[in-house]
Write a protein that binds this DNA or RNA. Structure first.
Length: 149
DNA sequence: GCCAACGTTGGC
DNA sequence: GCCAACGTTGGC
């Protein structure tokens, strides 16, 4: 059992959407490190901190869990999608994803509040220059976040 | 809209 | 394989 923080723009998919939809493909990741986490390290049932980014109040907005193993992201094959990748083929797909199931909306633990908590200071998402949309969360960090929600 | 930080691309 | 140029992320 591992833990993760996954960023989503609430204008695209919010925690409300994720809870309502149930298990849904986490499409659109186009970064190799983030892809590799999904491909190599995620397992069904892993805990996910659902983070709202690029919005008025960025922060952790709810909880979710990994709901599938990795499989190809269909949007890479769709020329009409903004995630289309002309260099990818069905025989050798470049981009994989997992299904993520929103489990519950929580209070918003804002980025600014997170920065005030010493017990969260080790979180990758808080490190300077960190931009990855998927980052691992330690057991200690996970427990510390849960206590604050 | 700005810009720091980081990732990717492509010429050599 | 290096690295400059360019693109993207994402908070502010």
């Amino acid at each position: 059992m591992k833990y993760w923080l996954m960023k989503s723009e609430p204008d695209e998919v919010s925690i409300d959407d994720a809870v309502r939809l149930g298990p849904a493909p986490w499409f659109g990741v186009r970064n190799y490190q983030a892809r590799n986490f999904m491909r190599d390290q995620m397992s069904i049932g892993d805990g996910v901190l659902f983070y709202h980014s690029s919005c008025a109040e960025p922060g952790i907005a709810g909880l979710a869990e990994v709901a599938s193993s990795a499989y190809p992201d269909e949007t890479q094959f769709d020329p009409k999608s903004k995630y289309f990748d002309p260099k990818s083929t069905r025989e050798n797909p470049r981009w994989l994803l997992v299904d993520v199931k929103g489990t519950r909306k929580t209070r918003l633990l804002s980025l600014s509040e997170m920065r005030t908590k010493p017990e969260l200071a080790t979180m990758t998402v808080l490190q300077k220059g960190s931009r990855l949309s998927i980052t691992p969360v330690t057991e200690e960090e996970w427990q510390a976040v849960l206590k604050l929600l």
